[in-house]
Amino acid sequence: MLVEGIKSRPVYMGLSIQPRARRHIFALEGEGAHALLDRKAALDSTALSRSEILYAPRGSQGKGNDEALRALGADMFFAAPTIATLLFRLRGTLTTAHMGTRLYIAGTEGFIGQAMIVALDHGMDHASVITEHRGSLARRVQCVHCKGVTEDVTHSPFPCGHCGLPLLVRDHYSRRLGAFQGVNIDAEEPGSAPDPEELFL
């Protein structure tokens, strides 16, 4: 049911440390910690002295990622209890950021989308933000009918958590909302929705 080649679908190029940046801000969620830990060799003491790491363990809690990130020795390290807390901290950090600051985001697609919204709200160009997808393929989906957003969607179709309509998860992505679009799959023939398929693990 998915359509290939949708132009709005984000492409995540992977973290690439920019050595000339005046400041490095890493917003990481869950398995996204490994995107940075795997590039430890590219982080010398100078880069780390200009780095801030914001991390929300989420599904990786208890795996020691927070200790490994803290051990890198960045100028600042903040372990957030929730994604909302991390995004609040990211807003504050970007409010005082100067020219030459680089933002790196790694984690699930839903997290990357939400952190990207914060970056765009602070005048950053989406093409200058360095991203890497790690972890679950579950999607953040907005119902185009009631405008409600459902997190961690793994099936299509699925019942909207707000209005209850059976939604087909499209590959169309809204950067403004940080979410894929869900449309009513049985609008013309109510009750004819096919069985859900697990597509996004």
Results as ranks from 00 to 15, higher is better:
V3C: 08
E4H: 09
G5M: 03
K7T: 08
S8P: 08
Y12W: 09
I17P: 00
I17M: 09
R23K: 12
H24N: 10
F26H: 07
L28Y: 02
E29D: 08
G32T: 13
H34F: 08
D38I: 04
K40W: 04
S45N: 08
T46I: 07
L48W: 03
I53D: 04
L54H: 08
Y55D: 05
G62M: 06
G64E: 00
G64S: 03
G64T: 00
G64P: 02
E67A: 15
L69T: 06
R70W: 08
A71N: 15
A74F: 10
F78Q: 02
I83F: 01
L86K: 03
L87Q: 06
L87A: 13
L90D: 14
T93F: 00
A97D: 13
G100A: 15
T108K: 03
G110F: 03
F111Q: 10
M116F: 01
M116C: 01
I117K: 10
V118E: 11
G123E: 02
D125E: 13
D125Y: 03
H133I: 12
V149D: 06
V153Q: 01
T154S: 07
H155E: 14
S156G: 02
G164T: 13
L167W: 05
L168P: 03
R170V: 00
R170L: 03
Y173C: 00
S174N: 06
F180N: 05
Q181E: 08
N184H: 13
I185H: 12
D186H: 12
A187D: 07
P190K: 02
P190A: 01
G191K: 09
A193V: 11
A193F: 04
E197L: 11
E198F: 03
L199G: 10
L201K: 11
